[in-house]
Design a protein around this nucleic acid. Structure first.
Lengths: 222, 222
DNA sequence: AACTGGTTCGAACGCTCGTTCGGAAACCTA
DNA sequence: TAGGTTTCCGAACGAGCGTTCGAACCAGTT
């Protein structure tokens, strides 16, 4: 078959998925440029050339790792946001979804955060578009939250959005789910920190919206 | 001379410095593993082997880029903190120092943030120690700030510290000093966001400490 | 003019990389 | 059992990598 454009069997899909997972682990551990196709083949217990049945090139392999990861986290998010109206709760859902997904898919999310520049041309653009969709969702939630709180727009929403993603994405440099605080608590901490601030929230003086306090009462108790 | 442990001339020091700057740019642009010594030599207009008079290996070159950068930002910080007592103002100094240095030394700071894992063994440990010193300073300021505000310790200070550095370090993925908000305003935005929170600060309801509001009145006006 | 020691370079070595290709193995259908 | 696809692999290629080494260059001193 030429280029086997249509995946033949479900075995094919399963194996491709497994290869993506292994590749994500190797890329996460050694870095994209430092990792070799041979590394991945060895870890996947497949021959070197056997990999090329599933991927045209090393770069396509990286792209598929990133793409699959991004699409999953995006789909999860959109599903969870469905039906929720309150802006503060929507933001809480976004943070929890992101942090939890991050911690449970550390390798792939690390590759996604750390190896974006390794892609070039069309691959890069496709991932850039996914990123845009994701950050747009976030920015819109922030805009609505600010509006509903009657806040002034001192800090540009673009800056706010990137600050939030900085807080969340940086965890791949220090957080280990089995050594630090549990994932759900980490997510709640970051959410509180971002919304209420270090001083505002830590001394308990900031007022919380009704829906936010209602939802997180049980969770933040220690 | 054996290993030329003692730098001979001041010409030597100057050229070494220039090479570090060029190397930082190339590493920042292409990534450490993807950049070649030949790339750096070409950009520095020096022969390939000529570089090896100044560096034992590619890894030592990376180490010296990171080390020089870290020591500079650390020295700047310690100097600016000298004599300042108020915790909130000390935090503001830290954020401004970090963000400003970041924007003015984008290449080197990007390498420092992005290529830490590329180092191994003793090199890695030395940078790790510098990082520890830096984060410790930050954590202590946060501890003092929380104490002075009489706040409860809901969120562990380690998490808070990394969240702050995440906000700040992430800027290398999106911020361009010539395209986005000016550096000083970005620094102030991040400081306000971190201390007061998105909701707390943006709607102007959160109280600010006396020294913080006194200091930033002029700066945040638009 | 000869010497000396810091500085620079051209040429080469050994190695690993991503990729290719022809054919074998495995599996399904008839 | 025969034929045809899908799946897999051993072997090899050319290119680029980091590093080394001996010789050349260039000051300043004798």
């Amino acid at each position: 078959m030429a280029e086997h454009a249509i995946p033949a069997t479900s075995d094919y899909e399963e194996k491709l998925d497994r290869l993506l997972t292994v590749a994500a682990e190797v890329f996460a551990k050694k870095g994209y440029h430092n990792a070799s196709i041979r590394d991945i083949a060895r870890h996947a217990e497949v021959s070197l050339s056997g990999l090329y049945y599933y991927f045209r090139s090393k770069e396509e392999l990286l792209y598929k790792v990133q793409s699959r990861c991004f699409q999953t986290v995006l789909a999860d998010l959109e599903q969870r946001l469905e039906g929720e109206e309150a802006a503060d709760e929507r933001l809480r859902i976004l943070v929890h979804n992101h942090v939890r997904f991050f911690a449970r898919n550390m390798a792939a999310m690390r590759v996604l955060s750390h190896e974006y520049d390794a892609l070039e041309g069309p691959y890069r653009e496709k991932i850039r578009d996914l990123r845009r969709r994701y950050t747009d969702i976030c920015t819109e939630i922030l805009r609505e939250l600010r509006r509903s709180m009657g806040g002034a727009d001192i800090v540009p929403l673009g800056v706010v959005t990137f600050a939030l993603f900085g807080m969340m994405n940086w965890i791949y440099t220090w957080y280990r789910p089995d050594r630090n605080v549990p994932v759900d608590r980490l997510a709640e901490h970051l959410y509180m920190l971002f919304v209420g601030g270090f001083v505002g929230r830590a001394n308990g003086s900031a007022k919380r919206s009704r829906s936010a306090s209602r939802r997180s009462e049980a969770r933040t108790s220690r």
